[in-house]
Amino acid sequence: MVRILNLLAVVALIGSAIYAYSIKYQTIFHAERIVKLKHEIKAEEDQIATLRAEWSHLTRPERIEALADKFLDLQPTGLRQIVSADALPAKTARADGIGDKLEALGLAEPTNTPGDAAASAPTTPSTPTR
């Protein structure tokens, strides 16, 4: 009987040691993974900073102005080019083919929505008389 209890104690001790070591190695694995992810995040942040610096370099106003002068044949705005709003052409109405077809079918009027029908209908059903 004592030998069986000793054997069970040794088996329990070995099992708990295996469990403890498995937890230890899982913790080490996850810690290494966290460090690796932190390095990847830092690399991505550095890349984002580099791209922002490049973007700010490319969008400098003096650079864009020089490129516009070189490649676009722009002329300064003259005083006679500025007009009042009354001198602008009137906006033309666009044709709505689908709307015209709906009007021709008589479907252009507003319809009753389910909320409107529910407001006009009684809220309780009528009970049949016996």
Rank of each mutant, 00 (worst) to 15 (best):
R52Y: 02
T77F: 00
A118W: 04
P122D: 15
I48Q: 13
A95F: 02
A9Y: 03
V35C: 02
A118I: 10
R130Q: 14
R94Q: 13
L7G: 12
L88S: 05
V83Y: 04
P89I: 03
K101M: 06
Y25W: 09
E103Y: 02
M1N: 14
K36S: 09
G15S: 09
L88D: 07
E45R: 01
A31P: 00
G99C: 03
G115K: 09
P61W: 08
A17P: 00
A12Q: 07
Q26K: 05
K38A: 13
Y19G: 09
L88R: 04
E45C: 00
A53V: 01
K36L: 04
Q75I: 00
L5P: 04
D96F: 06
H30W: 03
A53C: 01
E44Y: 02
H39E: 15
Y21E: 15
K24G: 13
F71Q: 13
I14V: 15
D116Q: 09
H30Y: 05
I64C: 08
A9L: 14
K36T: 06
Y21T: 12
F71M: 09
Y21F: 09
L5G: 15
R3T: 13
T77H: 03
I4L: 15
A49S: 14
A17G: 08
L13F: 05
V83A: 05
H57E: 15
L107K: 10
K36F: 01
L105E: 13
D69M: 06
G78M: 06
T111A: 09
L72I: 08
D96Q: 14
Y21W: 07
T59V: 08
T77E: 09
T50C: 02
A68D: 14
A66N: 12
L13C: 13
E65T: 05
T77V: 11
A31I: 02
Y25N: 13
P114F: 06
T92K: 12
L74P: 00
F71H: 14
N6D: 14
H57G: 11
T124P: 01
F71I: 07
A121V: 03
I41T: 11
T77A: 05
G115P: 00
A66H: 05
A17Y: 03
S120W: 06
L8C: 09
S22Q: 12
A119I: 05
S56P: 00
A20I: 05
L105S: 06
A108Q: 11
L67A: 10
T77S: 06
R130K: 12
I41A: 12
F29I: 07
I82A: 04
D100Y: 01
E109M: 04
I14R: 05
P110M: 09
T27R: 02
S126I: 07
T27E: 14
A66T: 07
F71A: 12
A43L: 07
H39R: 09
S56R: 11
V35S: 12
P61A: 14
K91Y: 06
V11G: 11
Q47D: 13
R60Y: 02
R52W: 02
I23T: 12
T129I: 01
T124S: 11
I82F: 00
T127A: 04
A66W: 00
P76V: 01
V83H: 07
A108K: 08
D69Y: 01
T50W: 03
H39W: 02
E44P: 00
Q26R: 05
I23C: 06
T77L: 07
D69S: 10
L5A: 15
L5H: 15
L79Q: 07
A20V: 03
H30L: 08
V2T: 06
G97H: 10
